[in-house]
C-alpha cells in the first residue's frame, strides 16, 4: 500500500480517529472508574489500535500520522486537560514508529514497538510535572523519597528497584499490546 491511495487514506483516517476517540471516551471512563494503572491501560489500548492500523497500512510514517491526528482531535475534545495527553500521544507514536523503522517492520518489531511506546507514560509524567512545577519538583521527589526511607525499613536502592519493576511491567504490557495488534491485523487484512 502507498500514500495517497484511497485505502491507505481511509485506514489512516479511521484508525487515527479511533485512537483519538479512544483517548477521549475510554480515557474519561477509565479516570471515572479509578482503575489502578489507568494511564497504562489507556496507552496499551491506544497502542493496540494504532499498531493494528499501522500493520494493515504498512506505510512508513503512518503511525506518526495517526498519532498527529489523534493529538489534534484531543484539542477539540471536552474536558479541561488536553495539552499533556496530546504530547504523550505524539511521543508514543514517535517511539513506536522509530522502533518499527529500526526493525524494518518485521513482525517481531511490533511487540517491541508497543513495549517501547509504553515506557513513555511514566517518563512523561515526570517531565510534564517539571513543565508546571519547574525542575525543582525533582528535589521535592528526592526529599520525599528520603523521608520514606526514614519512615520505612527500606533504602533508596529499594525505591529505585521498585521503579525498575514498574518500567518492566509497562514494557511487558506494551509488548502484549503489540502481539494483540498483530493478531487483530491478521484478522482484518484482506486475503489474496
Amino acid at each position: 500500500m502507498r500514500w495517497r491511495e484511497p485505502r491507505t487514506l481511509a485506514y489512516l483516517a479511521v484508525f487515527g480517529t479511533l485512537w483519538g476517540a479512544w483517548e477521549i471516551t475510554v480515557g474519561s471512563v477509565l479516570h471515572l472508574i479509578n482503575l489502578p494503572l489507568k494511564g497504562t491501560w489507556l496507552a496499551a489500548g491506544a497502542m493496540t489500535l494504532a499498531l493494528t492500523g499501522r500493520r494493515v497500512v504498512r506505510v512508513p510514517g503512518a503511525l506518526l500520522m495517526m498519532g498527529a491526528l489523534a493529538a489534534l482531535l484531543k484539542v477539540f475534545s471536552f474536558g479541561g486537560v488536553v495539552f499533556s495527553p496530546m504530547v504523550a500521544i505524539l511521543m508514543e507514536a514517535l517511539l513506536a514508529e522509530g522502533v518499527l523503522w529500526l526493525g524494518r517492520e518485521r513482525p517481531w518489531a511490533y511487540p517491541l514497538a508497543g513495549g517501547v511506546a509504553l515506557l513513555w507514560p511514566p517518563i512523561h509524567r515526570g517531565l510534564f510535572q517539571a513543565l508546571y512545577f519547574g525542575t525543582e519538583v525533582y528535589q521535592v521527589y528526592l526529599q520525599l523519597a528520603r523521608q520514606v526511607t526514614r519512615w520505612l525499613p527500606i533504602s533508596l536502592h529499594h525505591l529505585v528497584w521498585a521503579l525498575v519493576v514498574l518500567m518492566v511491567l509497562q514494557f511487558l504490557i506494551g509488548m502484549g499490546a503489540g502481539v494483540l495488534a498483530l493478531h487483530l491485523a491478521r484478522r482484518i487484512e484482506p486475503r489474496p
Binding site: G16, T17, A21
Partner: peptide
C-alpha cells in the same frame, strides 16, 4: 498536505467512531 485531508476526513468520522466506542 498529507495531514490536512486526513484531518478533514477525521472530523467527519469522529462523531460516528465516538458513538461506536461508547
Amino acid at each position: 498536505s498529507g495531514l490536512a485531508p486526513l484531518l478533514t476526513l477525521s472530523l467527519f468520522l469522529l462523531p460516528r467512531l465516538v458513538e461506536d466506542l461508547q
